[in-house]
């Protein structure tokens, strides 16, 4: 994994010194909560149990079998995967394109791009979602006015609603990709590019064979982070589709878990969804890392 293959021995001890505080906090702050979460998911844990009105009932995997037998869970699961995939692709494409664009324009244009990006990013999710709803309002929204489609409700239809939320998610998450990749491009030493030019490589060739491989570690981090974020989208769905759309047809897993846990006071079931979500995310990420390593990439 690490590239320090030419390092002297005794690396382990040095690494430990560098890593111990982080490992302590990560391990400590994770292990106990995960243990608790898994534990709760094994019980019938609702309002009555919290207030002590009813005894705790150990269900074993009961919550899990109930969840997996629930048709709505599967619908929500596939919706979440599709929605997250759309958001990830959109975020990466927009972010990468703007990062490259930012390296090619003059200072004023770049500053404008970055301010727009950071403003989008720094806008709290609730305020951002509300403004988007204003802009896409069926009767008075600016977008319908410009498109001449006054009266068209963007949030009524399942797919336009998902599309609108996805666009909002891309709007507030592309800046992360843009800033990271821009910083990465900026950190590439000039002589690496010069050396390629001296060897007679064209601009495109240089970009593909020199810059892209150097940026790979960053593409990895923005991809994984986007997957994690977009899989767990909550606020945008909650605000823009009023808690998951008509009859819950715009639900994603995180909102579904929240509704089960708090609205329906089924904390045990909510915890179960949390466990399943985390496990799914881990599977997706490990699968992705495996695939990368198989294709010969160092991670």
């Amino acid at each position: 994994m690490a590239r320090g293959h030419r390092l002297p021995r005794g690396d382990g001890r040095a690494a430990l010194a560098y890593l111990t505080p982080a490992l302590l906090v990560l391990g400590g702050l994770m292990a106990y909560p995960i243990y608790q979460l898994v534990l709760i998911s094994l019980f019938d844990y609702g309002q009555e149990q919290v207030s002590g009105g009813a005894p705790l009932v150990f269900l074993g995997l009961g919550n899990y079998t109930e969840l997996l037998a629930d048709k709505q869970f599967w619908t929500v699961l596939w919706q979440t995967v599709g929605f997250a995939a759309t958001c990830v692709v959109g975020t990466l494409v927009v972010g990468a394109a703007l990062a490259v664009l930012a390296t090619r324009v003059r200072t004023w244009a770049r500053t404008l791009l970055f301010l727009a990006a950071l403003g989008a990013w720094a806008t709290p999710a609730v305020a951002g979602s509300t403004i988007w709803l204003f802009l896409f309002d069926a009767n008075f929204g600016l977008v319908n006015e410009v498109l001449g489609s006054t009266g068209f409700s963007w949030t009524f239809d399942r797919w336009t609603a998902f599309g609108l939320v996805a666009a909002q998610v891309v709007w507030c998450s592309f800046p992360f990709v843009m800033v990271t990749l821009y910083a990465g491009i900026k950190a590439i030493p000039q002589e690496v590019v010069e050396a390629a030019a001296l060897d007679g490589a064209s601009t495109v060739r240089t970009a593909r064979s020199v810059l892209l491989p150097l940026l790979r570690p960053l593409i990895l981090v923005v991809t994984i982070q986007s997957v994690i974020w977009d899989f767990k989208v909550f606020t945008q769905i909650y605000v823009m589709t009023s808690g998951g759309g008509i009859a819950g047809r715009n639900l994603v897993l995180n909102v579904y878990a929240y509704q089960q846990a708090f609205a329906a006071s089924e904390y045990g079931l909510g915890a179960t969804i949390g466990v399943v979500m985390t496990a799914l995310l881990l599977l997706i990420t490990i699968g992705y890392l495996r695939a990368l390593r198989k294709s010969g990439e160092e991670l």
């Binding site: 990560l26 702050l29 994770m30 909560p33 979460l37 994984i224 982070q225 994690i228 949390g274 985390t278």
Partner: peptide, 15 residues
């Protein structure tokens, strides 16, 4: 990577 994935809502109560 696992630490990045845990939803904060999920670990809130024990923490």
């Amino acid at each position: 990577i696992a630490a990045m994935m845990l939803p904060p809502q999920v670990v809130a109560v024990p923490l």
